[in-house]
Design a protein around this nucleic acid. Structure first.
Lengths: 349, 349
DNA sequence: AAAGAAGTGTCAAACGTTTTCGAAATCAGT
DNA sequence: ACTGATTTCGAAAACGTTTGACACTTCTTT
């Protein structure tokens, strides 16, 4: 059976796949022991210049590269930083960019891992982390973790962390302040019936955004109405049904604050399907300012969150931890800002 | 020295880092051999239901997860697909999103790898591939590879491939057609002195974009002028100097076709520094339509390239190869389209 | 010339799994 | 009870590296 597999591969490929050279191949070709090769390649002390040169020559010829897996199995350090994401949606992609530039001239490689197979199940990232952490990565950044991960054997920094006691370093943006700004802006435009499409209740950002929403209402003397709140879970697919439910009410809101841009996109799409015009019949404001927000038509009014900076900051913290330093502050919060675009307008009179 | 390191870690962390449970720990706790644990966990035949249950119980208690590294070292298949990128800039990030959704309900996990350490050196991705391929990943997608990678032991699909003989499956967009469209559009606007800011000459896309540019000029009866061509290498930093050189000419072009959006952004920035107005004094058109293109002010006119689809297509091809299937076609080219925005206008009279 | 020091290379263990093979135990059939 | 088949489990090898201990040379020093 395994043979069948191999054979069909050879069919698919013009050239047969040559197995890569191992350290044993190099050792044999150079006429030395594998230990010598290892030391020569890694520049360890105790190998003469002549031998080293000869070994490196063979390495060159054979195109040998040490297997990351095998070497990391033995020596526990790999100089690779892992970032664990549920999937590569716009938010985590932006963070990835930030982490990438922050690590660009560090001595760390970057490995982003997304577990397609099991990501619906809770705690996928604890499992993934566990699978990668013993070896392979020296430290990890976790984006919107689904569990309150406790101690691991490698340093971990969380971005947009879980609710619950914060036992690990975190980076997040000012969700409360941002939500306050967003809701206040809708109120300033004249809206009174303002809906809220909430995020993932297990994330601190989601609870804070709801808190900000309620605070802004309270400040304006508007009674909080639970009937105007739906849970969209931050994802486009999961947000559509609650969005539809919200917009199908007989006395539907004139404006909606969506807890993130993907939810906002979902509700705008649902509105279109229901024949509602944005912003004519419905104002929508999002949160994040993902690149897609400005590409839409009409462009999305939203709260900008410095996603790249979140990533870069987390990367910086992680590198500090890996250097054995103590962090000056364990929890960092970055500011947000209102971006006025075209999905918000005063309500119909 | 290693001790010092450990100690400082404990300082940085409130809780001591507990080493993760290994298969040996599970075996000891369950009173069976490691072989039995392995079989129980992986559902292999030959273990009684009672024993399996007991082992799984212990696994649960200890929170055991098999090490991806160790298991991949022994059994060569990991169900992980790797995507190798030079760095996470907008283009590769978009591709990543596409690969992610394509793999979402496959049985493969996704691992994106970016070698910060050595990415300036040529052939970084061949080395990275080699380091990961023996183990860890079952197949790979390479984005804008710097070398004409020959046979490896795992299937590889290239996106935006290298020039040179195409020995591996490739996915790319219609660079020639897109360049034709772009240049033609500038000509239609009335431009005659049209500059070209070229890409990485080792990539097929770059040579094709230059070919399209020259073809459009020829079609319009405009003499190709080498003095109007600079090489920007697709990256913002590397494009700024050549852009400045181009715009500092005494008879500078009235319009520039930049081989990708990052180059376009660079030249617009340089133009601003030189006091030139876009599109008043200089029209600029890019290539890619990265998310950032529409966020700029003025928004960038560009050739849209279906980046997510490139990624998704490559992922589909790779999965086919991994299934041992033969690809219906080894080279796929996707169409491009003109996106008119605000950085292009007729030239001054 | 002896003895220690320094330099250079090899041996073998270890990392955490999976898998093959064989041993022991249980069971069925006579 | 005896044979043979079947089930259940463990021992050990293997994957490709790194590294500490050790052995053999060669060089200094007295």
């Amino acid at each position: 059976m395994s043979n069948v597999f191999e054979i069909s591969f050879h069919v698919a490929y013009a050239e047969p796949m040559t197995p890569r050279a191992t350290i044993h191949d190099v050792a044999a070709a150079a006429g030395v022991s594998v230990a010598t090769v290892s030391k020569a390649v890694n520049g360890r002390y105790g190998i003469s210049a002549a031998t080293t040169a000869r070994v490196l020559d063979v390495v060159q010829q054979l195109g040998y590269e040490s297997s990351l897996v095998a070497s990391s199995m033995r020596s526990r350090r790999t100089s690779v930083i892992g970032i664990l994401v549920a999937d590569f949606e716009p938010f985590s992609a932006e963070i990835l960019k930030g982490v990438g530039v922050a690590l660009a001239d560090s001595r760390y490689d970057l490995l982003a891992y997304s577990g397609s197979r099991q990501r619906e199940t809770n705690g996928w990232e604890r499992r993934s982390l566990s699978r990668l952490s013993g070896t392979l990565i020296d430290g990890a950044i976790m984006v919107t973790p689904t569990v309150d991960t406790t101690s691991t054997e490698i340093p971990v920094v969380a971005i947009d962390p879980h609710t619950g006691r914060a036992d690990l370093p975190t980076v997040e943006s000012d969700s409360f302040g941002g939500a306050l700004q967003a809701t206040r802006y809708l109120i300033e435009l004249g809206h009174r019936r303002i809906g809220f499409l909430a995020g993932r209740p297990d994330l601190r950002s989601a609870t804070l955004r709801e808190a900000g929403y309620r605070q802004a209402l309270a400040d304006a003397g508007i009674q909080f109405n639970p009937a105007l709140v739906r849970v969209g879970l931050y994802k486009r697919e999961t947000a559509k049904a609650p969005a539809a439910s919200l917009l199908s009410m007989t006395d539907r809101p004139t404006a909606v604050f969506a807890a993130n841009d993907l939810s906002a996109i979902a509700i705008i799409q649902v509105a279109a399907e229901l024949g509602l015009e944005v912003p004519g019949d419905l104002s929508v404001i999002g949160f994040d300012d993902i690149p897609e927000a400005s590409q839409m038509n009409p462009a999305l009014t939203t709260i900008r969150q410095p996603m790249k900076k979140l990533g870069a900051t987390a990367a910086g913290m992680l590198v500090s931890l890996l250097n054995g330093e103590t962090l000056p502050q364990n929890h960092i919060r970055l500011p947000t800002g209102l971006v006025r675009r075209a999905t918000t307008a005063p309500p119909h009179i």
